[in-house]
Design a protein around this nucleic acid. Structure first.
Lengths: 338, 338
DNA sequence: CTGAAAGCGCTTACAG
DNA sequence: CTGAAAGCGCTTACAG
């Protein structure tokens, strides 16, 4: 069995209180006692029982993370950023995958609250349109920070990129290199980032006096490689004059390029393709993919830092000022555009 | 603040004991009381304080997972498999990244033990040569299951693939399609799977009466895309007669192919390339990569199931029979071999 | 400098 | 069927 304070106390014939204090660097313990206690603790391989500590201190030093999908270059980079930062501050991370399902997400929030995590980090599921579960958390005074897929309506701290601006930049680039008919593969209706990327695309067209043609916009749901292939094929059937395409995410763009390759359509000579996110894969396919770099690791780090600050502030009963961090993105030009 | 049993008890003018029992379906509570309690609990949005529950029951319903690297197709698939299975059984997963460092891994084990997780799942860091920290866990009677990168010397349950057999299969395939000079890019010295893959390669040569030439084996450390490029270049300099190469992992193989492409070396016409793991990326690069499929999601699921059984058995004071699960792998033939 | 005591929020053996 | 009480292993205000 695992060693407790009591056993150390008995071993040395002193009180539990003193042992506890000695181990925690309280100043009112004699040097000698402290040394003795520390040596005994080390010898017995004592490790504080976190259940008891948590119960007393009402802190778990654990945060929850809810993410739509783990096997995903962007999200796994975010996870890595969060975990690396959390570790530095002595926090552990419980990771849950919502699978883009609102129901699951709700259940997982409940689980985490019941676990009494000190805070929650979340990127919303595509299926989430109702935010009651989120505001309940905020009302219960558990700090929560959203990242990537956020809800604009909810008042809390957020870490995002400027999706609209990034999409604008990508579309503008297509225009600058001479594209006249630019299609867009967008994501599902709900998540804010797929809305914003669409709006950025549209805005760039308008600002360049290109008439927005809704038939050039395809709405995707799964955002998968296969969907990319499918809609690339569809696009070729529907429009033979498209010379550029801005795609919501790299995986889909890579699927589209694969379909173009198969059908003998030359990228970029016949169609220019720009993706979004800068998955590692984007740099190794052929032709390599021009894309927007979305700094997942940084987003994760920043999100944890914000959450950490809120946890500390809440403990000190300070008023919490929600922050909105927007990270910079760059256009990475590769072979899929001329 | 969050609601406690006491508040429900006061609200209804009954004892905490009865409230607790009513909520936990004890049979010795009247239907009426149970209904009342449940309604009140729901109304007040009661969620049991897990710190207190854990302290009493000595169970945390949480397991720890230590993995060398999160942003990695194989490992993130494993994580997903573990989390999905854990969720089904009501377990939460704390994920830690060892970064292939022995020191970090040791610290993380300590952290998890101190957290009193019910069990630990681990894939060893490449830097780990000493297993004291692992056997300590086992001695402390915390169930631990190893997967993928295991230590043969340690007695515990394990989930792996037959790396040797898989490597043999890959090498045999190269021989079957006519390769005479087959190189191997191997992983670092320590992890068992890089040893086994090397041995499988060597065995296949021997069984086919091909003389094993150590200069054809390159030892890589980081197992990165760039290292793949670097050693592909080195290989071309060292040997102009190599017609096949079996590479320890897909990412490196993709780097190598990229270098071959750059230098105008035709894959597979001049050099056949086989990777290992079947990252998603392997199917979308050009030429697509022939590789061994390593079922990450399945490995994760199986590893959790084994751990779960050990947790249950240990609780019932049953004797634990360590199991060694070896999952099947297939060779996926694609364009990088003739 | 040391320690007795209360209490965190539960569960459960026991008494009635 | 209900509840008083002990106890899980800590922390910390308080007394001496």
């Amino acid at each position: 069995m695992l060693v407790t304070l009591k056993q150390i106390a008995e071993e040395l014939g002193i009180s539990i209180t003193t042992v506890s204090k000695a181990l925690k660097e309280y100043p009112d313990v004699s040097k000698k006692t402290r040394k003795l206690v520390r040596e005994t603790a080390a010898m017995l391989n004592y490790k504080p029982n976190s259940f008891a500590v948590n119960l007393r201190t009402k802190e778990s030093k654990t945060i929850g993370l809810i993410i739509p999908e783990i096997v995903h270059h962007f999200f796994s980079s975010v996870i890595k950023g969060i975990i690396s930062q959390a570790e530095k501050k002595g926090y552990l991370v419980i990771t849950l995958q919502s699978n883009e399902s609102y129901e699951l997400e709700k259940k997982q929030i409940d689980l985490l609250i019941s676990k009494r995590v000190d805070g929650i980090l979340i990127s919303l599921a595509n299926g989430t349109a109702d935010y009651k579960h989120i505001s309940e958390v905020l009302n219960q005074e558990t700090p929560l920070v959203m990242f990537d897929k956020i809800a604009k309506a909810i008042k809390c701290s957020k870490v995002t990129i400027d999706d609209r601006k990034a999409a604008y930049k990508a579309t503008q680039y297509l225009i600058d290199i001479g594209c006249k008919r630019i299609a867009h593969f967008r994501g599902p209706l709900l998540p804010q980032n797929s809305i914003d990327r669409f709006l950025g695309y549209k805005q760039a067209l308008t600002d360049n006096n290109i008439i927005y043609d809704p038939t050039l916009v395809y709405l995707l749901n799964k955002m998968s490689f296969d969907e990319g292939k499918f809609y690339a094929n569809q696009l070729l059937k529907d429009h033979n004059d498209v010379d550029g395409i801005f795609i919501n995410t790299d995986l889909v763009a890579i699927g589209a390029i694969s379909e173009f390759n198969n059908q003998g359509i030359k990228v970029p000579e016949q169609i220019n393709v720009i993706g979004f996110s800068n998955w590692f894969m984007a740099s190794v396919i052929s032709p390599s993919l021009t894309t927007i770099n979305q700094p997942g690791f940084e987003i994760g780090k920043k999100a944890f830092k914000l959450l950490y600050k809120e946890i500390k502030d809440r403990k000190k009963k300070k008023i919490i000022n929600y922050k909105n961090i927007v990270l910079e993105t760059d256009l990475i030009v590769r072979e899929s555009t001329v």
